[in-house]
Computed example of a mutant assay.
Amino acid sequence: MANITFITQAGKSLKLAADSGSVMELAVNNNVPGIDGDCGGVCSCATCHVHVAPEDWEKTGAPGDLEKDMLEFDDNVNEFSRLSCQISITEALDGITLKVAN
């Protein structure tokens, strides 16, 4: 089980838990504002963009090439940007914090 904290653009903290799927699915299924997942998780829309807390970066790892390409089209990219559809939920993610980018 992984406990994941989402920080919305409004500054609200939402703590959610899951043991499988993607971080985007967890967010969409729990109506996290700003995580839309319009493409359904196939890395083609960037509507699930999050900023990983710097201290949690090693837990999520860096984006792959396709994800990097998609992030280039988003205005809110920083060095800790990830598409939540590309982050699989595992126990290693337990305790991470993600800020909704859009």
Rank of each mutant, 00 (worst) to 15 (best):
M1C: 06
M1W: 00
I4L: 06
I4W: 00
F6V: 07
I7N: 08
T8N: 06
T8P: 01
T8D: 13
T8A: 12
T8Y: 08
Q9R: 13
Q9H: 02
A10M: 06
A10P: 00
A10L: 09
A10G: 03
G11W: 09
G11K: 03
G11L: 09
K12R: 14
L14Y: 02
L14H: 11
K15R: 13
K15M: 12
L16R: 01
A17Q: 15
A17K: 10
A17V: 14
A17S: 15
A17H: 05
A18H: 08
S20H: 14
S20P: 00
G21I: 12
G21Q: 09
S22Q: 05
V23N: 02
M24Y: 06
E25Y: 00
E25V: 08
E25K: 07
L26V: 13
A27D: 11
A27V: 12
A27S: 12
A27F: 08
V28I: 14
N29A: 14
N29S: 14
N29P: 00
N30M: 05
N30I: 05
N31Q: 14
V32E: 02
V32M: 05
P33N: 12
G34N: 02
G34V: 02
G34A: 04
I35H: 03
D36C: 02
G37M: 01
D38E: 15
C39N: 10
C39R: 06
G41P: 03
V42R: 06
V42G: 08
C43K: 03
C43G: 11
S44E: 15
A46Y: 08
A46R: 04
T47A: 10
C48R: 02
C48H: 02
H49T: 10
H49Q: 13
H49D: 13
V52N: 04
V52P: 01
A53G: 02
P54I: 13
P54R: 11
W57K: 11
W57Q: 14
E58S: 14
E58H: 08
K59G: 10
A62L: 14
A62Y: 02
G64P: 00
G64A: 14
D65H: 00
D65T: 14
D65L: 05
D65K: 00
L66V: 13
E67A: 07
E67G: 09
D69P: 00
D69A: 08
D69G: 05
M70V: 13
L71N: 08
F73T: 11
F73Y: 14
D74Q: 08
D75S: 09
D75Q: 08
N76G: 00
V77N: 04
V77T: 12
N78I: 09
N78L: 07
F80T: 13
F80R: 04
S81C: 07
R82N: 10
R82M: 12
R82Y: 09
S84L: 01
S84T: 05
S84F: 01
C85Q: 03
I87G: 05
S88F: 04
I89T: 13
I89E: 08
E91T: 15
E91V: 12
E91H: 07
A92M: 04
L93K: 03
G95P: 07
G95C: 09
I96V: 15
T97S: 11
L98V: 08
L98E: 06
L98Y: 04
V100S: 07
A101S: 15
A101H: 05
A101L: 12
A101T: 12
A101Q: 09
N102E: 15
N102Q: 14
N102V: 10
